[in-house]
Amino acid sequence: MPLLRIENLHTYYGHVHALKGIDLEVEEGEIVTLIGANGAGKSTTLRTISGLVRPREGRVEFNDQVLNHVPAHRIVQMGVCHVPEGRRIFTTLTVMENLTMGAYTLKDEQAIRENLQRVFDLFPRLAERKNQLGGTLSGGEQQMLTIGRALMSRPRLLLLDEPSLGLAPMLVKAIFETIREINARGTTILLVEQNARAALKIAHRAYVLETGRVVLSGPAQELMQDERVRKAYLGER
């Protein structure tokens, strides 16, 4: 039984048919990546899972429960946390306040402290800067903060949208190593990336999206060898 199962998902923005029947599955403990060009529907898939937009057809099932009509804040409580694209941290709050906000759904002080410790273990840099304002952090640190904030709710499934966007190559490497580390510590990850090469390297399985449809899927290693993928997404001739 997969942790997340999506069947025939159709999502619209007004009249724009963004997802045209997506099927995908994520098993507990996996890193699964969605790759594809701009506008292929990668972010929309994540937004539909987390309830920020609603599907018109099909179903999203998490842990045997249908999420289609569950409000976004309840989905977080059920253990799915979405890190939206573009480092949406609160620049006028301190690092600590940003992290506390991630634990908004938790009421148990003890659990919050434990989660905070876990996040600080993962990102020692955030511990050093916990009293600094979010806006004064570097781009890489801000991305760490967004991921750390999401982990504060201790999700079973983490949805990551373009975590490497706008980061220097060194930092991209560091972020991907961290994602692998988070996964090794027991969080299932669904990763959306433009940087297909880096994503395929850490993922167990991958789906390739084109204009709202899954055109290819399989183990990440195999897709990396696939000629079409190499041409279209890995920049090889």
């Binding site: 976004a72 946390c81 949406r88 609160f90 908004y104 759904t105 709710s153």
Partner: peptide
């Protein structure tokens, strides 16, 4: 209060607040 913090998050970034499990409505 907890509600006061929720308001602040909603004011600053509603999408992020919603993604963090706040019932923004």
């Amino acid at each position: 209060s907890r509600l006061g913090r929720a308001w602040m998050y909603v004011r600053e970034d509603e999408t992020a607040a919603e993604a963090m499990g706040i019932d923004t409505t």
